[in-house]
Amino acid sequence: MTNIILPELGEGIAKATIACWHVKLGDSVVLGQEICEAVTDKASFVIEAPAVGRIKSISINEGEDALVGGGLGIIE
């Protein structure tokens, strides 16, 4: 299992809003596939799959905030 993590986006940026998911539970993903977008401070940052597998869970839904370094979901 691999956690999907909100990466460091810059100094002083502690969180971001998940604007949209491009995948849903159960979808197969490949390494590097664009799976969701996090928005902070008028910037939209595309997050990629950190592993190949299936989306097992999504813990931060669209419109919800995520903490930098925190989990967004799990790939297994």
Partner: peptide, 8 residues
């Protein structure tokens, strides 16, 4: 520099 805040 990978820093969105600095870039903006």
């Amino acid at each position: 520099g990978k820093d969105l805040k600095v870039y903006m």
